[in-house]
Simulated assay, not measured.
Amino acid sequence: MNSAAPAPTPALDKPLMHYGKRRLDRIGPGAEQPAYRLVGISPLTPHIGAEVEGVDLSRPIGEDLAEEIRQALLEWKVLFFRDQHSFEPQSQLTFAGLWGVPEANPFFPKGDSIGVSRLAKDAMAMGSENIWHSDHSFMAAPALGSVLRAVEVPSAGGDTMWADMAAAYDNLTDAMKARIEGLTAVHDWVPSWGALMTDSQVTAHRQNLPAVEHPVVVRHPRTGRRLLYVNEPFTTRIVGLSDPESRELLDELVLQARIPEYQVRFRWQPGSVAVWDNIATQHYAINDYFPQRRVMERIAVAGVPLA
């Protein structure tokens, strides 16, 4: 009996961007390991995401405690607080103020007079959240961070995931890092938010929200760490490249947020609060809870132009 020789493995036309061991650093090179005296830190993964214990966010937060929470966010990139049942919109506004000036998303309905945006998801919103993104990257000064409070959660499902974009950059090949060094990309809300609007609504919003450009690789405004800064819904093209070359490169870069080793996943409970570094991470709200409801209240922290 004749046995056919195995078919040769097809040659790859370009090297794999990820193969084998990955570099997963919680803090950047040369940074000191923080110490915490006033809060407990329970990591959910070794490098991104931690639950903070021993803090009642409805009570006044002194500067020493505030500094530990700010340091923890720089270290872990997303923090979770359980059982914050007295955490109301005014508390949320005050808490967001630990990082800067609070701002609401220009497209979300405001849940109250102080600008906290209410996100209610039910049967009418099936599938509308399933995409990795960074909040407000379509703005000239993207949001520095966000605070999200669980108001109503389904009995199962409705988790949120975050991806560490410093890890995404660290694990690019040297050739890819060299290729994207110095490039800028266009960020625009029209292909995503605009798809839900009439032409007149798009025109009205466009007056205040023109397309903007950000570096493909940015330095974090507070740590200086290099981060990959492109995302699926808002990054539309890379400046200076042909349309096919831009599309090919963007398709490769935006997929880095989907790598599980860079991610943390959080199961919401009533009274849960999350705060995340919106420059260092992307997030993905899992819409798997139909026909149950998921109601959240979110407020962002105004940012600065990125470099």
Rank of each mutant, 00 (worst) to 15 (best):
P6L: 13
P6C: 08
A11S: 06
D13E: 14
D13W: 06
M17Y: 10
K21I: 10
R23V: 06
D25N: 15
G30H: 12
G30T: 13
G30K: 09
G30N: 08
A35W: 06
G40L: 03
L44P: 02
P46A: 11
H47R: 12
G54S: 11
P60M: 07
D64A: 12
E67S: 13
I69S: 04
L73Q: 09
W76Y: 06
L79F: 09
H85E: 09
Q90A: 12
Q90F: 13
Q92R: 09
L98D: 09
W99P: 01
F107I: 08
G111H: 03
A125G: 02
M126I: 13
E129S: 14
I131V: 15
W132V: 03
S134I: 04
H136A: 00
S137H: 00
A140V: 13
A141L: 05
L144F: 14
G145Q: 04
V147S: 07
L148D: 06
L148H: 06
L148I: 15
A150C: 11
V151W: 00
A166P: 03
A166Q: 14
A167C: 10
A167D: 04
K177F: 02
K177L: 02
G182Y: 01
T184M: 11
S192H: 14
G194E: 07
D199P: 14
A204W: 05
H205E: 09
R206H: 00
V212F: 03
E213K: 08
H214P: 11
R219V: 00
R219H: 15
H220E: 02
R222N: 06
T223W: 10
T223C: 03
R225H: 05
R225D: 10
V230E: 08
E232K: 10
T235H: 00
T236L: 00
R237Q: 13
D243Y: 04
R247C: 06
D251S: 14
V254F: 01
Q256P: 01
Q263G: 01
V264A: 12
F266Y: 11
R267F: 03
G271F: 03
S272N: 14
V273E: 07
D277W: 06
D277V: 09
Q282N: 02
I286T: 12
N287S: 08
Y289A: 11
V304C: 03
P305L: 08
